Computed example of a mutant assay.
Amino acid sequence: MRPDIVTFWHGPLDRLRRTCLSSQVAAGHNVTVYSFEPLAGLPDGVGNAGAEAVLPHAFSERLRPPQPDGSWRDWTTLQFSDFFRMRLMAQRAGLWLDADVLLLRPVEIDPAKPFFAWERPRQLGNSVLYLPPDDPIVMAFEALMQQDELTPDWLALRHRLVFALRKLRGKSNRVADIRVAIFGPAALTALAARSGELGYALPKQSFYAVHAEPRLFFDPSDFSALIGDPDVTGLHVSPKGRGNQPPVPGSLYAWAVERFGDSSSGEQARQPV
């Protein structure tokens, strides 16, 4: 089946994300972005839904206290989204794609089976994720969210030691402070291994061909083989602060803006490759 696509966003959308969301619509998917405030500048065809009903804003304070003005600190948005996508899985909302996943062709899934891909050797990515609502990974996150401390029972030994030392020294009693991705790809990989689901993982090339090398997306290059490869369904992009920079002529980014459009310029999304 061709699933609905869902994601979460906090703050203003940049040009890169608008282009990627347009590509998801152009691939023929219904796309919804969840947020706590109405999002301006969403591309045509992208819906906006309230995030509070999925995971309350107050949950963020269990990750770390907000700034004095109430805004979120450093890692909060990324870690909140790790939990948010699992709540969407529990609610049968659809396929999660990060807002910076450029789709080159439609995604088809079996709703009874997990859908994810290798991001790097020995680590799954969670930028592209579907899990059945009764999947052991979803249930593990649901159980974790019932805890006061949010301490995963799948935490790696090295992270348990780091956490114990931080508590002993009075630095922190929150697992969320250990590292930014503590509830993200490492958690997904550990839980997929525990539940015997690593065999469902797609090859890295399916979605993460440029993830570790953003120059392949942002710098001029011959990208014809990449976009013509039927095994490359989409590209998760790591913008590294370049999301609002003008695309460089001859780059894959410039091609994407030309093909899929950008709501800031009034262009319309075109058909998928």
Rank of each mutant, 00 (worst) to 15 (best):
M1D: 14
R2K: 14
P3T: 08
D4W: 13
V6C: 13
T7H: 07
F8Q: 03
F8V: 10
G11M: 05
P12Q: 14
T19W: 07
L21D: 01
S22D: 03
V25E: 07
A26P: 02
H29L: 09
N30M: 14
V33H: 00
E37L: 14
P38S: 07
P38V: 09
L42A: 10
L42H: 04
D44A: 15
G47K: 11
E52F: 06
V54D: 07
E61Y: 11
L63M: 04
P68F: 07
D69Q: 10
R73M: 09
D74S: 11
T77L: 12
F80D: 06
R85E: 10
R85F: 08
R85M: 14
A93L: 11
L102C: 11
L102S: 04
L104G: 06
P106I: 10
P111D: 03
A112G: 08
K113M: 13
F115S: 05
P121N: 06
S127T: 09
S127P: 01
L131I: 02
P133H: 04
D134W: 06
D135F: 10
P136M: 00
A140T: 01
F141Q: 02
M145T: 00
M145C: 01
Q146N: 07
E149R: 12
E149V: 11
W154H: 00
L155P: 01
R158I: 12
R166I: 09
R166V: 11
N173V: 05
A176S: 10
R179Y: 09
R179V: 15
R179M: 13
I182V: 15
F183M: 01
A187E: 03
A187D: 06
T189P: 05
A190V: 12
L191H: 01
A192V: 08
A193K: 13
E197Y: 12
Y200T: 10
A201R: 02
K204N: 15
S206K: 03
A209R: 06
H211G: 02
A212D: 12
E213Y: 14
R215S: 13
F218R: 06
D219K: 12
L226Y: 03
I227W: 09
P230R: 05
G234T: 12
H236A: 15
N244T: 04
P247S: 03
P247Q: 08
G250W: 12
A254V: 05
A254K: 00
E258P: 00
R259G: 04
D262Y: 10
S265E: 15
A269W: 06
R270T: 14
